[in-house]
Design a protein around this nucleic acid. Structure first.
Lengths: 145, 145
DNA sequence: GACGTCGGTCGATATCGTCCAGCATGGCGG
DNA sequence: CCGCCATGCTGGACGATATCGACCGACGTC
Protein backbone atom coordinates (compact mmCIF):
# COMPACT_ATOMS: atom_id res chain seq x y z
CA UNK A 1 0.00 0.00 0.00
CA UNK A 2 2.75 2.45 0.90
CA UNK A 3 6.08 2.16 -0.82
CA UNK A 4 9.42 2.95 0.68
CA UNK A 5 9.45 6.53 -0.59
CA UNK A 6 6.05 7.24 0.94
CA UNK A 7 7.31 6.00 4.27
CA UNK A 8 10.41 8.15 4.12
CA UNK A 9 8.30 11.12 3.14
CA UNK A 10 6.02 10.56 6.12
CA UNK A 11 8.99 10.10 8.42
CA UNK A 12 10.39 13.45 7.29
CA UNK A 13 7.03 15.18 7.65
CA UNK A 14 6.58 13.84 11.16
CA UNK A 15 9.72 15.77 12.06
CA UNK A 16 8.85 18.94 10.18
CA UNK A 17 5.61 19.29 8.31
CA UNK A 18 6.44 22.76 7.04
CA UNK A 19 9.41 21.80 4.91
CA UNK A 20 9.18 23.00 1.32
CA UNK A 21 8.40 20.54 -1.44
CA UNK A 22 11.87 21.17 -2.78
CA UNK A 23 13.44 20.19 0.51
CA UNK A 24 11.19 17.14 0.87
CA UNK A 25 12.11 16.16 -2.67
CA UNK A 26 15.80 16.39 -1.89
CA UNK A 27 15.37 14.23 1.22
CA UNK A 28 13.66 11.39 -0.61
CA UNK A 29 15.50 11.73 -3.91
CA UNK A 30 12.68 12.79 -6.22
CA UNK A 31 11.68 15.98 -8.01
CA UNK A 32 9.27 18.36 -6.33
CA UNK A 33 6.33 17.72 -8.66
CA UNK A 34 6.60 14.04 -7.78
CA UNK A 35 6.57 14.78 -4.09
CA UNK A 36 3.64 17.10 -4.57
CA UNK A 37 1.73 14.35 -6.34
CA UNK A 38 2.60 11.79 -3.67
CA UNK A 39 1.40 14.08 -0.90
CA UNK A 40 -1.81 14.72 -2.77
CA UNK A 41 -2.43 11.02 -3.02
CA UNK A 42 -1.53 10.31 0.59
CA UNK A 43 -4.04 12.96 1.61
CA UNK A 44 -6.66 11.70 -0.79
CA UNK A 45 -6.31 8.13 0.47
CA UNK A 46 -6.64 9.31 4.04
CA UNK A 47 -3.16 8.22 5.05
CA UNK A 48 -2.38 11.81 5.96
CA UNK A 49 -5.24 13.04 8.09
CA UNK A 50 -3.84 16.49 8.72
CA UNK A 51 -0.77 18.63 9.04
CA UNK A 52 -0.74 20.15 12.46
CA UNK A 53 1.29 21.95 15.05
CA UNK A 54 2.47 20.60 18.37
CA UNK A 55 1.95 23.28 21.01
CA UNK A 56 3.54 23.14 24.47
CA UNK A 57 0.62 23.10 26.93
CA UNK A 58 2.79 24.90 29.50
CA UNK A 59 3.07 27.83 27.12
CA UNK A 60 -0.69 28.18 27.33
CA UNK A 61 -0.66 28.04 31.08
CA UNK A 62 -1.65 24.39 31.47
CA UNK A 63 0.61 23.25 34.27
CA UNK A 64 -1.18 20.01 34.97
CA UNK A 65 -2.11 17.02 32.94
CA UNK A 66 -4.28 14.20 34.23
CA UNK A 67 -5.53 10.90 32.92
CA UNK A 68 -9.00 10.09 34.10
CA UNK A 69 -10.80 6.78 33.91
CA UNK A 70 -14.52 7.28 33.78
CA UNK A 71 -17.25 4.74 34.51
CA UNK A 72 -20.70 6.19 33.91
CA UNK A 73 -23.52 5.05 36.17
CA UNK A 74 -26.16 2.82 34.62
CA UNK A 75 -28.09 4.65 31.93
CA UNK A 76 -25.80 7.67 32.03
CA UNK A 77 -23.35 6.70 29.32
CA UNK A 78 -24.49 9.14 26.67
CA UNK A 79 -24.93 12.06 29.02
CA UNK A 80 -21.44 11.51 30.33
CA UNK A 81 -19.95 11.20 26.86
CA UNK A 82 -21.61 14.42 25.81
CA UNK A 83 -20.35 16.20 28.90
CA UNK A 84 -16.80 15.05 28.19
CA UNK A 85 -16.95 16.12 24.57
CA UNK A 86 -18.21 19.55 25.48
CA UNK A 87 -15.52 20.14 28.05
CA UNK A 88 -12.64 21.65 26.16
CA UNK A 89 -10.12 20.69 28.79
CA UNK A 90 -10.58 17.07 27.74
CA UNK A 91 -8.09 16.82 24.91
CA UNK A 92 -8.27 13.15 24.21
CA UNK A 93 -10.86 10.54 25.05
CA UNK A 94 -11.10 6.88 24.17
CA UNK A 95 -14.03 4.58 24.66
CA UNK A 96 -12.57 1.29 25.78
CA UNK A 97 -13.43 -2.26 26.73
CA UNK A 98 -13.41 -3.20 30.38
CA UNK A 99 -14.90 -1.70 33.51
CA UNK A 100 -13.75 1.79 32.73
CA UNK A 101 -15.82 2.96 29.88
CA UNK A 102 -13.76 6.05 28.97
CA UNK A 103 -10.14 6.99 29.40
CA UNK A 104 -9.52 10.67 28.93
CA UNK A 105 -6.69 13.16 29.07
CA UNK A 106 -7.25 16.48 30.75
CA UNK A 107 -5.18 19.68 30.64
CA UNK A 108 -5.76 22.09 33.51
CA UNK A 109 -4.14 25.15 35.00
CA UNK A 110 -4.48 24.07 38.61
CA UNK A 111 -5.71 21.39 40.95
CA UNK A 112 -8.73 23.57 41.65
CA UNK A 113 -9.69 23.52 38.01
CA UNK A 114 -9.28 19.75 37.92
CA UNK A 115 -11.54 19.43 40.92
CA UNK A 116 -14.14 21.70 39.41
CA UNK A 117 -14.29 19.71 36.19
CA UNK A 118 -14.47 16.33 37.86
CA UNK A 119 -17.18 17.58 40.21
CA UNK A 120 -19.40 18.21 37.24
CA UNK A 121 -19.18 14.52 36.35
CA UNK A 122 -19.24 13.16 39.87
CA UNK A 123 -22.97 12.59 40.10
CA UNK A 124 -23.13 10.78 36.77
CA UNK A 125 -20.01 8.62 36.83
CA UNK A 126 -17.26 7.19 38.94
CA UNK A 127 -13.83 8.52 38.11
CA UNK A 128 -10.24 7.55 38.91
CA UNK A 129 -7.70 10.24 38.34
CA UNK A 130 -3.98 9.92 37.78
CA UNK A 131 -1.80 13.01 37.58
CA UNK A 132 0.87 12.91 34.90
CA UNK A 133 4.32 13.24 36.47
CA UNK A 134 6.37 12.89 33.33
CA UNK A 135 6.11 11.64 29.77
CA UNK A 136 8.61 8.90 28.96
CA UNK A 137 7.11 8.79 25.48
CA UNK A 138 5.42 11.85 24.07
CA UNK A 139 3.01 11.19 21.20
CA UNK A 140 4.71 9.58 18.26
CA UNK A 141 3.35 7.76 15.25
CA UNK A 142 3.43 3.98 15.13
CA UNK A 143 6.41 2.50 13.27
CA UNK A 144 6.10 3.19 9.54
CA UNK A 145 7.84 -0.03 8.57
CA UNK B 1 2.33 36.04 26.94
CA UNK B 2 0.41 35.24 23.76
CA UNK B 3 -1.68 37.91 22.16
CA UNK B 4 -4.87 37.40 20.26
CA UNK B 5 -3.17 37.18 16.88
CA UNK B 6 -0.77 34.50 18.10
CA UNK B 7 -3.70 32.45 19.29
CA UNK B 8 -5.51 32.79 16.00
CA UNK B 9 -2.34 31.87 14.18
CA UNK B 10 -1.96 28.75 16.29
CA UNK B 11 -5.61 27.87 15.80
CA UNK B 12 -5.15 28.06 12.03
CA UNK B 13 -1.95 26.03 12.13
CA UNK B 14 -3.60 23.31 14.20
CA UNK B 15 -5.97 22.83 11.28
CA UNK B 16 -3.35 23.03 8.54
CA UNK B 17 0.29 23.47 9.35
CA UNK B 18 1.32 23.55 5.69
CA UNK B 19 -0.51 26.74 4.75
CA UNK B 20 1.70 29.33 3.10
CA UNK B 21 2.78 32.40 5.04
CA UNK B 22 0.71 34.48 2.67
CA UNK B 23 -2.40 32.47 3.43
CA UNK B 24 -1.72 32.54 7.16
CA UNK B 25 -1.23 36.28 6.90
CA UNK B 26 -4.57 36.70 5.17
CA UNK B 27 -6.33 34.62 7.84
CA UNK B 28 -5.05 36.72 10.72
CA UNK B 29 -5.01 40.07 8.93
CA UNK B 30 -1.30 40.78 8.84
CA UNK B 31 1.41 40.88 6.18
CA UNK B 32 3.49 37.81 5.56
CA UNK B 33 6.72 39.18 7.00
CA UNK B 34 4.88 39.81 10.25
CA UNK B 35 3.53 36.28 10.34
CA UNK B 36 6.96 34.93 9.56
CA UNK B 37 8.42 36.86 12.49
CA UNK B 38 5.65 35.73 14.84
CA UNK B 39 6.17 32.10 13.93
CA UNK B 40 9.88 32.46 14.44
CA UNK B 41 9.31 33.79 17.93
CA UNK B 42 6.70 31.22 18.83
CA UNK B 43 9.20 28.53 17.86
CA UNK B 44 12.04 30.24 19.68
CA UNK B 45 10.01 30.55 22.87
CA UNK B 46 9.07 26.90 22.70
CA UNK B 47 5.37 27.54 22.28
CA UNK B 48 5.50 25.69 18.99
CA UNK B 49 7.32 22.45 19.65
CA UNK B 50 7.00 21.09 16.13
CA UNK B 51 5.04 21.01 12.95
CA UNK B 52 3.97 17.48 12.27
CA UNK B 53 1.69 15.23 10.33
CA UNK B 54 -1.23 13.22 11.63
CA UNK B 55 -1.13 9.77 10.05
CA UNK B 56 -4.06 7.34 10.13
CA UNK B 57 -2.76 4.25 11.98
CA UNK B 58 -5.14 2.07 9.95
CA UNK B 59 -3.34 3.16 6.81
CA UNK B 60 -0.19 1.60 8.23
CA UNK B 61 -1.98 -1.61 9.09
CA UNK B 62 -2.53 -0.91 12.77
CA UNK B 63 -6.03 -2.18 13.29
CA UNK B 64 -5.94 -2.17 17.06
CA UNK B 65 -5.22 0.40 19.67
CA UNK B 66 -4.94 -0.43 23.34
CA UNK B 67 -4.40 1.52 26.52
CA UNK B 68 -2.33 -0.35 29.03
CA UNK B 69 -1.84 0.43 32.69
CA UNK B 70 1.47 -0.87 33.91
CA UNK B 71 2.55 -1.48 37.49
CA UNK B 72 6.16 -2.63 37.68
CA UNK B 73 7.09 -5.12 40.37
CA UNK B 74 9.26 -3.80 43.22
CA UNK B 75 12.68 -2.77 41.98
CA UNK B 76 11.74 -3.21 38.34
CA UNK B 77 10.62 0.32 37.53
CA UNK B 78 13.58 1.33 35.42
CA UNK B 79 13.82 -1.93 33.54
CA UNK B 80 10.16 -1.71 32.69
CA UNK B 81 10.39 1.92 31.61
CA UNK B 82 13.32 1.09 29.36
CA UNK B 83 11.44 -1.83 27.84
CA UNK B 84 8.45 0.38 27.11
CA UNK B 85 10.57 3.09 25.52
CA UNK B 86 12.32 0.62 23.29
CA UNK B 87 9.12 -0.96 22.08
CA UNK B 88 8.10 1.09 19.08
CA UNK B 89 4.50 -0.01 19.28
CA UNK B 90 4.16 2.08 22.44
CA UNK B 91 3.33 5.45 20.97
CA UNK B 92 2.56 7.36 24.10
CA UNK B 93 3.47 6.73 27.70
CA UNK B 94 2.86 8.78 30.81
CA UNK B 95 4.31 8.23 34.24
CA UNK B 96 1.51 8.95 36.68
CA UNK B 97 0.61 9.11 40.34
CA UNK B 98 -1.37 6.29 41.87
CA UNK B 99 -1.06 2.54 41.83
CA UNK B 100 -0.51 2.32 38.12
CA UNK B 101 2.89 3.68 37.49
CA UNK B 102 2.61 4.02 33.72
CA UNK B 103 -0.27 4.49 31.34
CA UNK B 104 0.65 3.76 27.75
CA UNK B 105 -0.95 3.65 24.33
CA UNK B 106 -0.15 0.79 22.03
CA UNK B 107 -0.75 0.39 18.30
CA UNK B 108 -0.78 -3.19 17.03
CA UNK B 109 -1.79 -5.07 13.92
CA UNK B 110 -3.50 -7.93 15.71
CA UNK B 111 -4.43 -9.39 19.07
CA UNK B 112 -1.53 -11.79 18.67
CA UNK B 113 0.91 -8.92 18.44
CA UNK B 114 -0.64 -7.32 21.51
CA UNK B 115 -0.24 -10.57 23.40
CA UNK B 116 3.35 -10.94 22.31
CA UNK B 117 4.28 -7.45 23.47
CA UNK B 118 2.55 -7.73 26.83
CA UNK B 119 4.14 -11.13 27.41
CA UNK B 120 7.54 -9.50 27.30
CA UNK B 121 6.54 -7.30 30.22
CA UNK B 122 4.54 -9.89 32.12
CA UNK B 123 7.35 -11.10 34.35
CA UNK B 124 8.38 -7.59 35.35
CA UNK B 125 5.08 -5.83 35.83
CA UNK B 126 1.36 -6.23 36.24
CA UNK B 127 -0.66 -4.86 33.36
CA UNK B 128 -4.31 -4.02 32.75
CA UNK B 129 -5.27 -3.67 29.14
CA UNK B 130 -8.21 -1.84 27.63
CA UNK B 131 -8.89 -2.09 23.91
CA UNK B 132 -9.94 1.17 22.26
CA UNK B 133 -13.40 0.80 20.72
CA UNK B 134 -13.78 4.36 19.48
CA UNK B 135 -12.37 7.81 20.01
CA UNK B 136 -14.96 10.35 21.09
CA UNK B 137 -12.18 12.92 21.18
CA UNK B 138 -9.12 12.48 19.05
CA UNK B 139 -6.05 14.43 20.13
CA UNK B 140 -6.66 18.13 20.17
CA UNK B 141 -4.75 20.96 21.77
CA UNK B 142 -6.03 22.48 25.00
CA UNK B 143 -8.12 25.63 24.57
CA UNK B 144 -5.99 28.53 23.34
CA UNK B 145 -8.05 31.11 25.17
C1' DG C 1 4.86 -6.16 -30.39
C1' DA C 2 1.62 -2.16 -30.00
C1' DC C 3 -0.88 0.35 -26.70
C1' DG C 4 -2.59 2.38 -22.46
C1' DT C 5 -1.55 3.70 -17.90
C1' DC C 6 1.14 5.26 -14.29
C1' DG C 7 4.67 7.73 -12.25
C1' DG C 8 8.47 10.19 -13.23
C1' DT C 9 11.53 14.48 -15.12
C1' DC C 10 12.24 19.01 -17.15
C1' DG C 11 11.51 23.79 -18.18
C1' DA C 12 8.49 27.90 -18.17
C1' DT C 13 5.62 30.74 -15.58
C1' DA C 14 3.12 32.14 -11.55
C1' DT C 15 3.31 32.44 -6.76
C1' DC C 16 5.61 32.92 -2.50
C1' DG C 17 9.21 33.98 1.04
C1' DT C 18 12.65 37.08 2.64
C1' DC C 19 15.14 41.13 3.06
C1' DC C 20 15.25 45.95 3.63
C1' DA C 21 13.82 50.68 4.25
C1' DG C 22 10.62 53.42 6.25
C1' DC C 23 6.64 54.47 9.28
C1' DA C 24 3.35 54.31 13.33
C1' DT C 25 2.71 53.50 18.23
C1' DG C 26 3.53 53.19 23.08
C1' DG C 27 6.51 53.60 27.12
C1' DC C 28 9.99 56.25 29.45
C1' DG C 29 13.18 59.86 31.00
C1' DG C 30 14.34 64.71 30.89
C1' DC D 1 4.70 67.79 28.14
C1' DC D 2 7.80 66.64 24.81
C1' DG D 3 11.24 64.15 22.50
C1' DC D 4 13.42 59.72 22.11
C1' DC D 5 13.95 54.93 21.65
C1' DA D 6 12.28 50.32 21.02
C1' DT D 7 9.07 47.45 18.90
C1' DG D 8 6.26 45.71 15.37
C1' DC D 9 4.02 46.56 11.12
C1' DT D 10 3.88 47.46 5.89
C1' DG D 11 5.17 47.55 1.00
C1' DG D 12 8.21 46.62 -2.68
C1' DA D 13 12.17 44.27 -4.84
C1' DC D 14 14.41 40.15 -5.68
C1' DG D 15 15.59 35.44 -5.23
C1' DA D 16 13.45 30.95 -4.18
C1' DT D 17 9.70 27.80 -4.65
C1' DA D 18 5.37 25.74 -6.45
C1' DT D 19 2.72 24.48 -10.27
C1' DC D 20 1.57 23.35 -14.87
C1' DG D 21 2.12 21.32 -19.32
C1' DA D 22 4.76 18.53 -22.35
C1' DC D 23 7.24 14.65 -22.73
C1' DC D 24 9.52 10.10 -21.43
C1' DG D 25 10.18 5.34 -19.96
C1' DA D 26 8.65 1.07 -17.49
C1' DC D 27 5.24 -2.16 -17.05
C1' DG D 28 1.11 -4.94 -17.86
C1' DT D 29 -2.45 -6.27 -21.22
C1' DC D 30 -4.30 -7.81 -25.31
Amino acid sequence: MLDDIDRRLLAVLVEDARLSLKELAARVGLSSPSVSERLRRLEERGVVRAYTVDIAPQALGYQLQAIVRIRPMPGRLHVVQKLIEETEAFCECDKVTGDDCFIARLFVRSIEELDRILDRIADKAETSTAIVKSQPIRRRPPPLA
